[in-house]
Simulated assay, not measured.
Amino acid sequence: MSTPSIPFSARLRAASEGAHAAAESQRYVSALVAGDLDVAGYTDLVVQHQAIYAALESTADEMRDDPLAGPFVDDALHRLPALEADLAHLVGPDWADRTGPHAETVAYADRIRDTARSPERFVAHHYTRYLGDLSGGLHIGRAVARHYGLSGAAGTAFYHFDRIPEPKAYKDAYRARLDALPLTAESESALLEEALLAYRHNTAVFAALARHVPADGTEAAA
């Protein structure tokens, strides 16, 4: 009796579990969700996200007609308008002149743009960002709003998916698309490798943001 094959989405999740956990366990993330930062410490994360999603969503536009990556491109996921609204609220209308990404974020964004030449590698970045946003990201959004005095979606619009009313159903359908990918052994290996790289880039960004974590555990000074 043959053993049922493990779906690719399950293998991808298992292969990246350690890297995902390493990113989530960074000091900055713990301090953010515990409310140990000041608003500037949270705002710096929004700045980094804006640079990352600008790269991801401009690359997605290039991939819309790609037979492998195109089915994953969905405007309902796009975060860039929300991030720019958050920055306008947190920093002001001139946020683009007053803020900028860290070197680690620039490297991450550059890597995402490079995947325009490799659809399976683009899917890896798409997966690690958006499925994370629809999972733990929703919890982070609630914690941020509660701890940093941000009411409604003002300053936390990034975490509100108004066009995706049922995140679990969306994630299930997304994983089904992953399972249906016509991957060769080589392209499957590339996707798995890129997912690990994406998590390493994300970890590096969180490490750079750790400058906002107060050394004595009290809230950082503004």
Rank of each mutant, 00 (worst) to 15 (best):
V205Y: 03
E186V: 10
S189D: 12
E186W: 03
A180C: 08
E194L: 09
D179P: 07
L183G: 11
S187F: 02
E166H: 12
L197G: 00
S189R: 15
L191T: 07
E188I: 01
E166S: 14
L196G: 15
E193N: 15
L196E: 15
E186P: 00
E194P: 06
K171V: 10
E166Q: 14
P182K: 12
E193Y: 05
P182V: 13
E193S: 15
D172V: 14
D172I: 13
A180H: 08
A185P: 06
D179K: 08
E166G: 01
R200T: 12
I164N: 01
K171E: 04
P182R: 14
A198R: 02
R200I: 07
A169S: 07
S187D: 13
E166F: 13
N202G: 10
K171W: 05
L183C: 06
S189V: 03
E166D: 15
A185S: 12
L192G: 11
E193I: 00
D172C: 03
H201S: 04
A195K: 01
E166W: 08
L178V: 09
E193L: 14
R200M: 00
A180V: 03
S187Q: 12
K168Q: 12
S189K: 13
A204N: 10
Y170A: 11
L181V: 05
A195Q: 04
S189P: 00
P167L: 13
S187E: 13
L197C: 08
V205N: 05
A169L: 13
P182T: 10
A195L: 07
H201R: 05
L183F: 04
D172E: 08
L191S: 11
E166M: 08
Y174N: 00
L183I: 09
A185R: 15
E186Y: 02
L183V: 09
N202F: 09
L178E: 07
T184Y: 01
I164F: 05
P165T: 09
T184S: 15
Y174S: 04
Y174A: 03
A185C: 03
R177P: 04
E188C: 06
I164Y: 02
S189C: 10
L178K: 10
A198K: 02
L191G: 05
A204K: 05
L197N: 02
Y199S: 00
K168A: 11
A169K: 04
T184C: 02
L197T: 15
T184R: 06
T203P: 11
L196F: 05
L181H: 00
K168Y: 01
L192Q: 13
R177E: 10
E194G: 08
L197K: 08
A173V: 02
S187R: 15
H201A: 00
L183A: 10
Y199W: 14
R200P: 00
A195D: 06
V205C: 09
R200A: 08
A190M: 08
A185F: 07
E193W: 04
Y174M: 02
T184H: 07
Y170I: 10
L181G: 00
L181W: 05
T203C: 14
L178Q: 04
P167I: 13
R177W: 06
A185I: 02
N202L: 08
R175L: 06
D172K: 10
S189M: 04
A176I: 03
Y170N: 08
A190E: 14
R177A: 14
A180S: 13
I164L: 10
L197R: 12
E194R: 09
Y174P: 01
L197Q: 09
A169H: 01
L191H: 10
A176F: 01
E166T: 14
